[in-house]
């Protein structure tokens, strides 16, 4: 810690200015836009009429997509937790000298374009592909059943996209866990299941909380998976917001949906943090 009262503020100034101008001010403008007169348009201009009715109107029109966003994101988060935990566990506690290589493998997918990877699922889940063929042979899928253009494809892709964000914080908290604690529990006649439930899992909760947040928040706002792998029946709120701003040019409605999405996320996140305690995010 050094003296110099003005120095920290000088260091912060440019970055803070950027965040205030291009993050905070836009957020305020978004809230304002959501209350504009819905009768206006981009060409004639919008009047500020404090139209709180935009919110119930937006929910009435697109409540299904809003609900679906949280449903799909919840499923994807749960799937990512169930898949990510064993992987993080192995990397943190069983991988030995392979640890760094495995971590690189977890991050590596993010080096390729996100859209191109999402499109790759079109190939993997294709009607003539091996996965659909296998599921049909096992009678898990009807002979003409599909995976593409179904919620399964969208949730599979959402889970895949955000899985690294689940694995990394889980790994961070598991790696800090003292393996002697696990040995001690075993010495005291705890069965492996008990060791996991009573020692490993509680000690890794900060990682679980951070991982679920880092997966859930971006997944609710995602609309790339629904657009590329689903149909309008799988559309999430992001698809509607995109269309409202870029196709229908209905700014007040798009803004109202954006604000609703953010507000719902904040409520869920605060509730989750209250219940679960500290996170890996610090």
């Amino acid at each position: 810690m050094r003296r110099g009262r003005a120095l920290p503020y000088l260091l912060l100034l440019p970055g803070l200015l950027w965040l205030v101008l291009f993050f905070l001010a836009p957020a305020v403008q978004l809230a304002a836009t959501s209350l504009y007169d819905p009768a206006g348009s981009l060409t004639t201009g919008y009047a500020m009429t404090w139209s709180f009715g935009n919110y119930p109107d937006a929910v009435a029109a697109y409540g299904a997509q809003l609900g679906r966003s949280f449903g799909y994101a919840g499923l994807a988060t749960l799937a990512a937790l169930l898949l990510g935990y064993p992987l993080a566990y192995v990397i943190a506690l069983r991988a030995g000298r392979w640890q760094n290589l495995l971590l690189v493998c977890v991050v590596a997918p993010m080096f390729t374009s996100f859209l191109v990877r999402t499109l790759a699922w079109k190939t993997v889940l294709s009607d003539s592909g091996a996965v659909v063929g296998l599921l049909r042979d096992l009678h898990l899928l009807a002979p003409d059943g599909r995976l593409l253009a179904t919620p399964v494809a969208v949730v599979t892709s959402l889970t895949y996209c955000y899985l690294p964000f689940m694995v990394l914080p889980l790994y961070a908290s598991l790696q800090r866990l003292d393996p002697r604690l696990l040995d001690a529990a075993g010495d005291l006649f705890a069965r492996p299941g008990q060791v996991f439930r009573r020692v490993t899992l509680p000690l890794s909760m900060p990682g679980v909380v951070a991982g679920t947040l880092l997966t859930f928040i971006p997944a609710t706002g995602d609309y790339v998976s629904a657009e590329l792998l689903g149909t309008p029946n799988e559309y999430m709120v992001g698809n509607v917001i995109d269309a409202a701003f870029l196709v229908r040019l209905d700014y007040p409605q798009g803004a109202a949906l954006s604000v609703l999405l953010m507000a719902a996320i904040l409520v869920l996140v605060v509730g989750w943090l209250r219940r679960s305690g500290p996170t890996e995010l610090g």
């Binding site: 965040l19 993050f23 905070l24 978004l30 701003f245 798009g254 954006s258």
Partner: peptide, 20 residues
Amino acid sequence: LVLAPVATPEVVLGTSLLAL
């Protein structure tokens, strides 16, 4: 203020800036 953009879905970041 530093952490908030990380905890905001991209679609909200994008539409906010567009509105501004």
